[in-house]
């Protein structure tokens, strides 16, 4: 019984390590997805000139107009 315990605990810590590695990978994937959304949002606010979604026309640009000028982003 005393010999079985270390084997058991090492197997357990192995599973725990795999679990924490999986969680870490999942977190990085979530972070990468959030970063992509963030880049799209920054494009929409600071770069769009009516080409992001054709239906939006110049609406995004004009709505964020003052913010763009203030932030130093190029504007018409």
């Amino acid at each position: 019984m005393s010999t079985a315990t270390p084997a058991h605990s090492s197997a357990q810590s192995g599973t725990a390590a795999i679990q924490s590695a999986t969680i870490e990978t999942r977190d990085w994937l979530i972070a990468a997805a959030a970063a992509i959304v963030a880049l799209i949002a920054l494009y929409a606010v600071f770069m769009d000139n009516g080409s992001l979604i054709s239906a939006t026309g110049d609406y995004l640009h004009e709505f964020a107009h003052d913010g763009r000028h203030l932030f130093g982003a190029p504007c018409h």
Binding site: A38, L39, A41, L42, A64, L70
Partner: peptide, 16 residues
């Protein structure tokens, strides 16, 4: 729009 644009930009910058 100025305030909203800067909050959205702040959120995105915070993520990056």
């Amino acid at each position: 729009g100025l305030v909203i644009a800067l909050v959205v930009a702040g959120l995105a910058i915070g993520v990056l």
